[in-house]
Design a protein around this nucleic acid. Structure first.
Lengths: 204, 204
DNA sequence: AGTGTAAATGGAGAACTCTCCGATTGCCAC
DNA sequence: GTGGCAATCGGAGAGTTCTCCATTTACACT
């Protein structure tokens, strides 16, 4: 416990910028809740991950769960936060071809491929997080879109970079992935190759 | 009432092929329920369109609503059925450029543009219908995908037509549209032009 | 008409998400 | 310390979706 974890508070780049430091009991509860949620997720699967169940497992009231994570999607995003932060560091400042120091065409392709590789492990939780219009309001989406739009703008300033970023990310929807991969049996390789073809209209 | 409506039973091409004819009381209730739902939708908006409200407005039990339309998404799709059937007729057997008798590149483009034009009027209801993975299980999605995949296969048999159909349709998600158009302010023209750019990788 | 049966009905109730607000508690200035 | 206040807590309850099944009803076949 000494020294805690690091400099950056928690829930950093990805979901929402922390407006102000959390009170000690609140921070403790966040940790307790995340651990409880992780246990439920591991032991009983994503369907058992209800707000009531998390509250019961953590031994707090359900109101506390909603105060920490504004809704079920928020809890799901919080559970993905570690991995998301790693991904964000990788494409913002990591080594090539994901990070800087590579032509934008290749960075774009690397981003999409890496995103696909991330999906199998997280699609269930992501699908819960991305429910409805929630995906587009999340910080992660905004950052991904901005990153893709920047790369596309570097490739060809005449393109509508923001629109194309949305379109590419739409093809990476967790719900679509669940359907394509688990139900329709498309392999990750097939998805990557398909994305490459989509890209060919952009990198031309 | 004499002569009813037509040859084709109801809920025809779009949602699911009718397995067997409906009993008279069931058909009557379907009509009553759809009228009640339409009234609620018109008067109070999509948020008031709950299964309980429809049941109450129609004067039946909620179990009946669920028997007719398996869930809220099913009800939403049923409300869209008329328009959907018209759209389907248009791209299957209607006049060019949407229907046959036009090069596949142009039919593909016409399909996407027409889809975008349809969205503003129906996005709210469509968003309710497309919730979660429901979109991909719906008959309408399957048909749209098959149509697009056929056109893409005609353009270039070497492409993964089914994957690209999914990807194009992903960009037409009602949830994404609501975000892009209503929240982000993208015009229909901008969406169409963006889709044209996406297409350029396919029609190349 | 009478009858058997498969289909349709309705509403109680389970499960869930999310809100509300009085009670409680950490934290900072003094 | 201690006083005050803003943040936090908890759990009852409202609103929804969807299930279940005992009861009722339509319709085909004598």
């Amino acid at each position: 416990m000494a020294g805690d974890e690091g400099v950056i508070p928690e829930v950093t780049l990805s979901i929402h910028g922390a407006p102000r430091p959390e009170r000690a009991d609140a921070a403790r509860n966040r940790r307790i809740l995340l651990e409880a949620a992780g246990r439920i997720l591991r032991d009983k699967g994503v369907d058992a991950l209800t707000m009531d169940a998390v509250a019961a497992e953590a031994g707090v009231g359900v109101g506390t769960v909603y105060r920490r994570f504004s809704d079920r999607g928020g809890l799901a995003y919080a559970l993905l936060d570690d991995e998301e932060c790693r991904f964000q560091r990788a494409f913002i400042s990591g080594p090539p071809p994901l990070g800087p120091g590579t032509p934008p065409q290749e960075r774009l392709r690397a981003f999409l491929h890496r995103y696909v590789e991330r999906l199998p492990d997280h699609a269930d939780l992501l699908a819960a997080a991305e429910d409805g219009t929630a995906r587009y309001r999340a910080g992660a989406y905004t950052l991904h879109r901005q990153h893709l739009a920047t790369l596309i703008g570097q490739i060809d300033p005449a393109l509508d970079a923001v629109y194309l970023a949305d379109a590419l990310l739409a093809a990476l929807s967790a719900h679509l992935f669940l359907y394509q991969h688990r139900e329709y049996g498309m392999s990750l390789e097939r998805l990557k190759t398909g994305l490459d073809h989509l890209l060919s209209g952009i990198t031309s």
